[in-house]
């Protein structure tokens, strides 16, 4: 059902522009990768704390508040470099299971991060919070891990 849409995207000028250049795809891909490192760091520092590791001597709230602008920035960079990468090969993506796994888990991870996870990191710490924090952190790591792995796998299929 989506195939005609992807075929239409294949002709879109931005993707064609990337395809027409020897350098553009690798350069955008590199920026995508740099943003991944920043995204990984800004998410992991909070998730590690949620599961009781890393900066365990500090409050979750503080670390989450500090990491948030970097996470937001990294996500904006990921999406704005990811779109031209996708547009350079929409049909290939359409037939790639890794692409669909990535997009679905990405949607889930984004919603999860900005709802449940954000809410948890803002909660006042009371005696039964630790368990919830641990669960929320572990699920976040698992979700983003899947997004990143599936993303890398698009390139292999």
């Amino acid at each position: 059902m989506l195939l005609p849409f992807f075929q239409w995207l294949e002709k879109f000028w931005l993707g064609q522009y990337v395809v027409g250049s020897n350098w553009l795809f690798p350069v955008i891909e590199s920026v995508h990768l740099l943003a991944l490192a920043l995204l990984g760091g800004s998410i992991l520092i909070v998730d590690l704390r949620l599961v009781g590791l890393g900066l365990s001597g500090r409050e979750v709230k503080e670390i989450a508040r500090e990491a948030r602008p970097y996470m937001n920035f990294a996500l904006v960079m990921m999406v704005s470099t990811g779109i031209p990468l996708f547009l350079s090969e929409p049909i290939k993506c359409y037939y790639s299971p890794a692409f669909w796994v990535k997009m679905w888990t990405l949607a889930i991870a984004l919603i999860y991060t900005y709802t449940i996870r954000t809410k948890t990191t803002r909660m006042e710490f009371v005696h039964n919070t630790a368990r919830r924090q641990m669960l929320v952190g572990a699920l976040s790591i698992a979700l983003w891990f899947t997004v990143a792995s599936a993303g890398r796998w698009i390139g292999f299929s």
Binding site: A37, G40, A148, S149
Partner: peptide, 8 residues
């Protein structure tokens, strides 16, 4: 993926 852990 280890890049996220290390460089991140």
């Amino acid at each position: 993926l280890a890049l996220c852990l290390f460089v991140g």
